[in-house]
Amino acid sequence: MGRRITLMLLGLLLASGVVGCGDTTSGSPTTNTTTTTAKALFNPCTGISDDALRAAGVDPATEEAGIGGVHQSGWEICSWRGPKYFVTVFSTSRTVSEFERKPGNVEFEDVTVAGRQGRQFRVEGASKNLDCDVLFAASQGVVQLRVQNRAGQDNLENPCTVLYRVGDSIVPALPR
């Protein structure tokens, strides 16, 4: 029962981070007469090696694409479980600025993870002290690395401390 609640909580938290990032637009759409090709999104499920995942302390066999196994339009999402935390990588065409403007995203700061510049932030709410996120700008938009401690575990580390350690193996696999 505890595992089911934890998984449901994780799904809700991930959905709030993904779904709430969009902007509302009113009016009629305009037609663009120039043809542009959208850059394909990085797929973390296929783009991060099993060796990198094991080095990050998660089990590659626990891979879950999407949120609760459901694909999210405009996103590529993959998560894995470890004994005390989850690692999730989000890939989107959105920008860092869009994340910064989203209500509920707080405590932004510039950081370096595995030699790469990023923007660390937290999401307000009950899970604020359980998870840590870092955004990395990429040619496709943004790649986001999230570490979320497993609720109910004892002696949990600060999730941002864990993210930096996990990032040593995961970040080199992320697109620039």
Rank of each mutant, 00 (worst) to 15 (best):
V89A: 05
N32G: 04
S73N: 12
D51E: 15
D131A: 14
N43S: 07
G2H: 06
G115P: 09
V70K: 04
S16R: 15
A173K: 09
T24H: 13
L145Q: 15
A126V: 12
R94V: 00
V58M: 07
D131V: 02
V87D: 03
S93N: 11
T30W: 09
P29T: 14
V87K: 11
V171D: 07
T33W: 08
D154M: 07
L14P: 01
S79I: 10
A40Q: 06
S97C: 01
C78I: 06
G152L: 02
I170T: 06
V123E: 05
G82P: 01
L130M: 04
M8N: 13
K102G: 07
T112S: 14
T34P: 07
C21S: 15
G74V: 01
V143M: 01
G66S: 08
A126M: 09
V96C: 03
L145V: 01
A40W: 01
G125F: 03
T33G: 08
G141T: 01
L9S: 11
L41H: 00
T92F: 03
R122M: 10
G17V: 08
T24I: 15
P83Y: 06
A52C: 11
C45Q: 00
Q148A: 14
G2A: 15
V162Y: 06
V96L: 15
E63S: 00
L7S: 08
F90R: 03
S73F: 12
G68W: 00
Q140E: 10
L53H: 03
F99Q: 14
K84T: 09
E98L: 08
N32Q: 11
W75Q: 03
V19S: 15
K102F: 10
R4W: 14
Q144P: 00
E63G: 04
L14T: 12
A56C: 14
I48V: 15
G11Q: 09
W75R: 03
Q153T: 10
L13W: 08
P172K: 03
C21L: 15
G68S: 08
V147A: 08
G167V: 08
R101S: 15
W75L: 09
A114I: 05
K84S: 14
H71Y: 12
A56W: 10
V171F: 05
A65L: 05
A138K: 04
C45N: 06
A56Y: 10
N155E: 09
Y164F: 13
G115Q: 12
P83Q: 11
G47L: 00
L10G: 11
D168K: 15
K102N: 07
V134G: 08
V162L: 14
R81N: 11
C132K: 11
L7T: 12
G118A: 04
G167N: 06
Q153S: 12
R176D: 07
S91V: 13
L14H: 07
A15H: 11
C21E: 11
G118K: 07
L53P: 02
T24D: 10
R54F: 03
Q140I: 02
K128W: 03
V166Q: 00
L156P: 02
V147Q: 00
V134W: 05
D23Q: 15
N155Q: 10
T112Y: 04
T24N: 13
L13R: 13
R116C: 04
N158F: 11
